[in-house]
């Protein structure tokens, strides 16, 4: 993106661009997570798989692994 004008406004413009980029990246990430969540919810609904206990990671091994790394707990992975 190009901003015309004196040096000060170019700096402001660059900062604005950076913020905008971060904003767009964040919005995209949120959208992707939301879409992934929607897919999982749809899958869960289609399987009528609503009796999974609270605190379980549903069809998300990566998130479960990250939590196990953080907490130091062992993992229990159920394939059903």
């Amino acid at each position: 993106m190009y901003f015309s004008g004196p040096a000060g406004s170019r700096v402001k413009g660059a900062r604005k661009e950076k913020i905008m980029r971060k904003g767009i990246a964040l919005a995209l990430a949120v959208a992707c997570v939301s879409m992934a969540q929607d897919r999982k919810d749809a899958l869960r609904e289609s399987l009528k798989d609503t009796a999974v206990g609270a605190g379980w990671f549903y069809d998300d091994l990566e998130a479960g692994t990250a939590e196990a790394k953080k907490s130091g707990k062992p993992m229990l992975v159920v394939f059903r």
Partner: peptide
């Protein structure tokens, strides 16, 4: 069960077969 991180996997697309080998 609270002593574990519990994960439920409901389908096998993308499953890492070098790790998860079962009947």
């Amino acid at each position: 069960m609270e002593q574990f991180v519990c994960v439920r996997v409901v389908q096998a697309w993308g499953m890492d077969l070098s790790l998860f080998q079962f009947h």
